[in-house]
Design a protein around this nucleic acid. Structure first.
Lengths: 217, 217, 217, 217
DNA sequence: CATGAATGAGCATTCATTCAT
DNA sequence: AATGAATGAATGCTCATTCAT
């Protein structure tokens, strides 16, 4: 029967990995998705795995087939959501656009790939909960922060070398480039209904501070 | 025994507020102090009132004589720690120093009154937990954020009026003035051991971006 | 109120330790009693603390005020039930009755103090569960077995010395003196309804094997 | 792959019982073997069928192809391990050796066929768990105990009739013949590392009590 | 027949909250 | 007012059992 099923699926979709594994992987994804929702809404400690299971449409026990425990589930979410982003970060090719344009692209990328996706929730979750997950802080620092900071430093060094910037302030504090993005995420999580903050505008404003206001825009 | 102790303290402060009330207030403060420690270290949900009581040196039941429940305790901490700060914020006197100097003072004040005090912990706690305390978000917005933003806007408007700034970017986005401070708090909470970030330096760097690098420093 | 109660109880029973502690101790005893019932009936793993609590007339949480966890509760039962018996065992006074009479008394004691009490249940529980509680096996060996064996050896050595026994078989294997008692406990736990076994008779029969049949009985 | 392996084994044993049935029976045996290991080590309730399956090298579901549920598996183990022993018990040929020699042989048989085999574990398991398996107690009583006791009674009656024993104590309490064996099993399960007990020596010592010490040994 | 992923009832343990003293 | 023992609802996790493949 398994044989036949395999043969059958081979006919329809030659690359398909045993429907069994597929289902399993789909469930795992559903759990991660559901857990991210719940963790984002309530925080790590207040999230009930029961609710995660319900939202993911699986039984509670199924969660434990994929994740050793609640902590590992949390950590896996961060890893899973963050890893694909690492490539994006690294890929940032400083080709030979003017630095200002490179950073403009960076801002667009941040808005598109982080702010408008679930990664924004992951980011807030990391801010809020990571102090209780030191191992995760390490992972996050090494795989995201360190690389992003290094990439930004390269860009800014080039800008100094090319005479686009008068001094090395931004080389020493590349954090100033992301600070507006972070602030916007936090601000809107807390005060959106009081006074929504426009991420892109805020980040571009910071760009203006750095390179001077663009003439036409 | 407890009676005797009470009588003793009545001896030291014979003045007005019946030793009874004094004791009670002292206990309340101890609870707030202890609770802030615990909430900061573990987050709201993971904090045990048992531990708070132990740390405060009172019985668990005593907490309920001062706070209706765990949530109210949390909210009271934020209120209690934040209220004295409101005055500080408002007091910011835009006298007639050059705006740059006014903001320099603001930075010093932030470092001294927030970064180096328990208020830093409160701030992180607010970032992390407030999404689950909407009432608190409202309170915080109205009593801290709104006023601080308004104050900063006043300062920046004046700077524009005086010709110290070329445009109104900072009037529209006063958040850019605090962003570096916030980033530093979060960064150090997460990554201090990997790469500590110097708040004051970061904030002053931002000031340089806004007003141009100071000649002599 | 506390004052008055204290005074009141002081009047009625001068030695009474704060009704509070009394209650607490009573509850602890009730839990031990109830837990022994349940453990005996179902074994360690199959016992639900819920049932123990119900039977003891306390809330489930109360169990944890007195015992760290299910294992410790089990161990405490054994310790609590066994410790008072240790004295009984040691007290065995080999005065100068003929050894046969001493052992006759020992049998009576065993029947009275073990077989007809909850200690019989504890003993079965130990047989059945102790392999999974090595620490308890140690405790039990050192505090019960070792002493009982030593006491029996002393008695039997004296019997040899006095010429009451022809050889040292029983000095080498004092276990033969208790074997019938143990067998009877196990037998009746398993097969009582098929063929009840009379402990006292069985143990006395063994005594007859050792010293020869008594003439009159 | 499994298919091929099966075909392969069909090659080696082409005879009668379809390789299929053979395989199945082997699996069943492996499960029983594995389950006995686990039950012995942890007791009935604490044994995980997952572990049994792993140890037996089969999938968890396979257990349910052979046994209705965990209880039936347990009961089957006892039945399976005990049935072959019944014959051994019954076979005990009272030929016309002196009774002492017959019992000597019995002891050797007990040591060889029980003490040194898995039957010892089964026996302990029965002692520990059977109170929760009344049906099993019945089975065990009827198929082992009753017959063994009857056989021993026959032997002892003959001994009385032949004048080898002065009275009928052992006819009334044949349990005294096995008590030492049982005690040794239990003792060593609990206290072997503290003070190992020699079964054979203990049982022979009991024989000495019954028939008097042998002259030469 | 065999597999092992999925299920969900079951249970130990925790902890906010209450209340008799 | 203060205490801390008691409560019991809540929840993470386990594991016997089922069933689609």
């Amino acid at each position: 029967m398994k044989q036949r099923a395999a043969r059958g699926s081979r006919g329809t979709a030659p690359a398909k990995p045993s429907a069994r594994k597929e289902q399993s992987a789909a469930r795992r994804d559903a759990i991660i998705e559901a857990a991210l929702d719940e963790f984002s809404a309530r925080g790590f400690a207040a999230t009930r795995l029961d609710d995660v299971a319900k939202r993911a449409g699986v039984a509670k026990g199924t969660i434990y087939l994929h994740f050793a425990d609640k902590e590992k589930l949390f950590e896996e979410i961060v890893r899973t959501m963050v890893l694909p982003f690492i490539d994006v970060v690294e890929a940032a090719p400083p080709d030979d656009l003017p630095t200002r344009a490179v950073l403009g692209n960076f801002i667009d990328m941040f808005v598109r790939e982080v702010y408008l996706t679930r990664r924004r929730d992951v980011l807030r979750l990391v801010l809020a909960e990571v102090p209780r997950f030191p191992a995760l802080a390490d992972f996050y620092y090494r795989n995201v922060i360190e690389r992003a900071i290094a990439a930004l430093r390269r860009v800014m060094s080039r800008a100094v070398a090319r005479g686009e910037l008068a001094d090395d302030t931004l080389v020493r504090f590349p954090q100033l480039l992301i600070a507006p993005g972070m602030i916007a995420i936090v601000w809107n999580a807390l005060f959106e209904r009081h006074a929504p903050l426009d991420v892109a505008a805020l980040m571009h404003a910071q760009l203006d501070l750095i390179f001077g206001k663009e003439k036409a825009s």
